[in-house]
Amino acid sequence: MAVAERTHTPDVITVDDDGHQATTFSLKRACNGCGQLLGDLDERDVDQHGNTTDVRAECGNCRPLVELETAGCRTWRLTRRSIGRIDDEIDKDGIYAKGYWETVDSKLIVTGLRIGTGPDRLVARFGDWIIRHPDGRWTVHTTGAEQGETEVRR
């Protein structure tokens, strides 16, 4: 999937004779999957109806998700708002899922979702992508410093 490289125009600060500063900048486009800045906004970013386009294929972190979706996988980004819906989808597949609790700043809070049981269980934290493969496997695409995929088999 070849995508034209985006321009990355730096901000330009100018100072007039009276010492007033003015900053000229180009609008930037962020990945609609993870929010990573991709470069300058351009004509690719709005479709014929005025909607912003999906640019995840341009993002090194989210490109694998687009490829998985093309291969027939379903993907969900785990957030505090989506956890219930994703939990329901996993339950429909006969897989045990529940909130994953951790101690943060001396408080026990939900930080993600545990999928499966036993040593093969999978943990997705808020911000990660949960993937259901056509063969029934569930995996997690992490968005943190330790990127990669972990999988649990049914």
Score class of each variant (00 low, 15 high):
residue 1 M to G: 06
residue 3 V to D: 08
residue 3 V to M: 09
residue 3 V to F: 08
residue 3 V to G: 04
residue 9 T to Q: 03
residue 10 P to C: 02
residue 12 V to A: 08
residue 13 I to S: 14
residue 13 I to Q: 14
residue 14 T to M: 15
residue 14 T to F: 15
residue 15 V to L: 12
residue 15 V to N: 09
residue 17 D to P: 04
residue 17 D to Q: 12
residue 24 T to H: 11
residue 24 T to K: 11
residue 25 F to Q: 13
residue 26 S to T: 13
residue 26 S to I: 11
residue 27 L to R: 15
residue 28 K to R: 15
residue 30 A to R: 15
residue 31 C to H: 09
residue 31 C to F: 10
residue 33 G to H: 05
residue 33 G to T: 06
residue 36 Q to N: 13
residue 36 Q to R: 11
residue 38 L to V: 01
residue 41 L to M: 10
residue 45 D to M: 11
residue 45 D to N: 08
residue 46 V to C: 01
residue 48 Q to V: 09
residue 51 N to T: 05
residue 52 T to F: 14
residue 53 T to N: 02
residue 53 T to A: 03
residue 54 D to S: 04
residue 55 V to L: 13
residue 55 V to C: 09
residue 55 V to N: 10
residue 56 R to P: 02
residue 56 R to E: 10
residue 58 E to P: 00
residue 64 P to F: 00
residue 65 L to Q: 03
residue 68 L to P: 00
residue 68 L to G: 03
residue 68 L to T: 03
residue 69 E to H: 04
residue 71 A to W: 08
residue 71 A to K: 13
residue 72 G to A: 07
residue 73 C to G: 04
residue 75 T to H: 03
residue 77 R to P: 03
residue 78 L to W: 05
residue 79 T to M: 05
residue 80 R to F: 14
residue 81 R to L: 15
residue 81 R to D: 15
residue 83 I to C: 06
residue 84 G to I: 14
residue 89 E to P: 00
residue 89 E to R: 11
residue 90 I to L: 06
residue 90 I to P: 00
residue 91 D to F: 10
residue 91 D to G: 07
residue 92 K to C: 09
residue 92 K to H: 14
residue 92 K to A: 15
residue 94 G to A: 02
residue 94 G to M: 05
residue 96 Y to V: 12
residue 97 A to R: 03
residue 99 G to N: 12
residue 99 G to L: 10
residue 99 G to M: 09
residue 101 W to C: 07
residue 101 W to H: 14
residue 103 T to A: 06
residue 103 T to L: 04
residue 104 V to T: 10
residue 104 V to R: 12
residue 106 S to P: 02
residue 107 K to S: 11
residue 112 G to Y: 07
residue 112 G to R: 11
residue 112 G to H: 07
residue 113 L to D: 07
residue 114 R to P: 00
residue 116 G to K: 10
residue 118 G to R: 09
residue 121 R to A: 10
residue 123 V to T: 13
residue 127 G to K: 06
residue 127 G to H: 04
residue 127 G to T: 04
residue 128 D to I: 00
residue 129 W to S: 05
residue 129 W to R: 02
residue 129 W to H: 06
residue 130 I to K: 01
residue 130 I to L: 04
residue 131 I to A: 01
residue 132 R to Q: 10
residue 132 R to N: 08
residue 134 P to Y: 12
residue 137 R to A: 09
residue 138 W to T: 04
residue 139 T to G: 03
residue 141 H to L: 13
residue 141 H to Q: 15
residue 143 T to E: 15
residue 143 T to N: 14
residue 143 T to F: 07
residue 144 G to N: 09
residue 145 A to G: 07
residue 145 A to C: 07
residue 146 E to P: 06
residue 147 Q to R: 14
residue 150 T to E: 06
residue 150 T to N: 07
residue 152 V to H: 12
residue 152 V to I: 14
residue 152 V to C: 13
residue 153 R to M: 10
